[in-house]
């Protein structure tokens, strides 16, 4: 009964589950350092995701604490440049306990994989995420080829 491997697997599975539950209970904030969780300018730029939807390209970047006015987006051909400055939130007359959030400016440039329709680019900012939608130029869009 217990000697069957599937039962042993299940037992270990239960133990793993218990361990992960216990880990969550004893969450210790020091455990997480070293993974650089925050926005960081030391390595040059905010973290960015790039997606290809066939007809359009999409860019998402983490820019917490930055408003529309703090960000500049420039495009020339298939060269895209995103730059921004993060201002300090430090209030006057307060004693400082921790400052982990960096204040700096960044510039990050990308070479787009295809030509885009520059006039139809849409940029939005929500909850500290910058989203750019870049529709591909007609010539770069996927086309169906029918067999003659």
């Amino acid at each position: 009964m217990w000697t069957r491997t599937s039962d042993i697997d299940r037992m270990f599975g239960a133990m793993d589950l218990l361990r992960s539950r216990l880990n969550r209970l004893t969450t210790d904030d020091n455990r997480f350092y070293g993974r650089s969780p925050g926005w960081s300018a030391t390595d040059g730029s905010p973290r960015t995701n790039f997606y290809d939807n066939g007809n359009q390209l999409e860019l998402k970047a983490e820019v917490p604490g930055m408003s529309k006015e703090d960000l500049t987006i420039q495009i020339q051909g298939n060269y895209l440049e995103v730059s921004g400055t993060r201002k300090s939130d430090a209030p006057e007359g307060y004693k400082v306990h921790r400052t982990e959030r960096e204040t700096a400016s960044f510039t990050r440039s990308f070479t787009l994989p295809s030509e885009v329709n520059v006039d139809k680019i849409d940029a939005s900012l929500q909850n500290g995420i910058l989203s750019l939608t870049l529709p591909k130029a007609e010539a770069a869009k996927p086309k169906q080829v029918s067999i003659a």
């Binding site: 307060y94 400082v96 306990h97 982990e100 959030r101």
Partner: peptide
């Protein structure tokens, strides 16, 4: 699960 980076300030009236 990751820990967010934080800034903590204090004055006579509050922690921020």
């Amino acid at each position: 699960v990751i820990a967010p980076v934080v800034d903590i300030f204090e004055n006579d009236d509050e922690m921020l």
